[in-house]
Design a protein around this nucleic acid. Structure first.
Lengths: 187, 187
DNA sequence: TATTTCATTGAAAATAAATTCAACAAAAGT
DNA sequence: ACTTTTGTTGAATTTATTTTCAATGAAATA
C-alpha cells in the first residue's frame, strides 16, 4: 500500500470516527481530543490531516452531499412505490449500514441554525425537497396522494423522516417504523 | 411595583430573550454576550440573575416541563379528535404565541444528545409519549387507528411533529401542515 | 547505508467563551 | 439627609478548547 493510499485510509478513519461522534453526541459536544482519542491518534496528528474541526465537518457534509445528489435522481417508479422503498431502505441502514444512517442524520442536523456556515450552506443546497415535491405532484395527478401544496408536503415529509431518524439515532434499540405509516401522511 | 416583582420581570425578560435565541441559533451558538446584548443589559448583570448559562437553560426547561405536564393530562375526547385539535393549536402558536412554539421546539432540542445533562434529563422525564401511547391504544380498540406497537407509533408521531416544528422554526414564513396529514400516520 | 521525506507525539500557545469582581449609581429604608 | 441595600457596568480573570510547533521516529529513496 502506497503512502498516499495509507493517508487516504487514515483520513477515512478519522471521518468515520467523527461522523459517529457527531451524531452520537452532537457537533459541539464532540471535542477534537475526543475524536483523536477514538481513532486513536494524538490531537496534533489530526491537524496533519484536517485543517480544523470545521473543515472536518465540511468534508463529511461534502460526502453526504454527493450521496444526496445520487439519491435525488429522477425515477420512473410510481411515486408511492418509490418513496416507500426509499424509506424501507433508509430505515434498514440503521442496523446494516450505520455509516449511511449516520450520514443522513448528520446532514439533517447540519441544515439547522447554529452550525458552521460553510457546512450548513452546502447541506442546504442539496436537499431532496424539490425532487420529492415533483414526485408528489405526479402522485396527486394519479390520484394516489391527497391534494395540497406539494412543496409543503415534501418539506413536512422530510422533516418527519428527519425527526424519526434522530429518534432512532438517540436510541439504537428503537425499532424502525413501517414506511407505510409515513407515506400515509401523503394519502 | 416592588423590587421583587421588578426582579421577576427582568428574569422573565432574560428567559424570553434566551429562549428566542436558543431556538433561532441553537444553544451553543448563542453566546452569553448575545443574550445580554439582546435583552439588553451588561453581561455582568446577567450573572446577577442566573448563575450560569446552563442554569438559564435549565430554568427554561423547567417552565417547559410544567407546560408539558399540563398538556399531558388525561382526556375524555376521542383520540383522533384530541390529537388533531392538539396539533391544530400547536401549529397556530407558531404565529400567535411564538413563545409557546419556541418552548416546544426547545424541549425537543434539549432532549437530544449533546445538551447539558441536567436540562436534558429533565426534558426527557416529561415527554408525552406514554400518554399518547395510551391514547393510540384506545384509538386502535375503537378501530380508528391501524394496528401496531402503540409505543413506537407514539414515539414516531412526536418525532415527526418535532421535525416539522423545527422546520417551521427555521423558516418563519413556512406554512403549517394540516394536522390531518400527520394524524394520517396513525390511520 | 545515508539522506530525505513523511508520520507522530504531547506539551505550549493562541483563541474563544464564560464567569468574577471592584467600583459606582440608584432606590429604599431610617 | 444618611445609611443600607440592590442594580449596574465593563474590564480582568478563569476556564475550556482549538491549534501550532519543535522534536523524534519510521519509512521511502538513492
Amino acid at each position: 500500500m502506497t503512502r498516499k493510499e495509507q493517508k487516504e485510509e487514515r483520513k477515512k478513519a478519522i471521518l468515520m470516527t467523527a461522523l459517529t461522534l457527531f451524531v452520537e453526541r452532537g457537533y459541539y459536544d464532540t471535542k477534537i481530543t475526543d475524536i483523536a482519542a477514538a481513532v486513536p491518534m494524538s490531537t496534533g496528528l489530526l491537524f496533519h490531516y484536517f485543517e480544523s474541526k470545521e473543515e472536518l465537518l465540511l468534508e463529511l457534509v461534502k460526502m453526504g452531499a454527493a450521496g444526496t445528489k445520487m439519491a435525488s435522481q429522477e425515477t420512473e417508479y410510481p411515486p408511492e412505490i418509490f418513496l416507500t422503498g426509499f424509506l424501507r431502505q433508509l430505515f434498514s441502514y440503521a442496523k446494516e449500514q450505520p455509516w449511511v444512517f449516520n450520514m443522513f442524520v448528520l446532514m439533517g442536523q447540519v441544515r439547522r441554525a447554529g452550525m458552521p456556515e460553510d457546512a450548513r450552506n452546502l447541506a442546504l443546497s442539496v436537499d431532496a425537497v424539490d425532487m420529492t415535491a415533483k414526485l408528489i405532484e405526479k402522485g396527486q395527478k394519479a390520484g394516489v396522494f391527497h391534494e395540497g401544496d406539494a412543496g409543503l408536503m415534501a418539506r413536512c415529509f422530510w422533516a418527519s423522516v428527519q425527526g424519526i431518524m434522530e429518534e432512532m439515532a438517540m436510541d439504537k434499540s428503537m425499532e424502525a417504523p413501517k414506511p407505510e405509516w409515513i407515506i400515509a401522511m401523503l394519502k
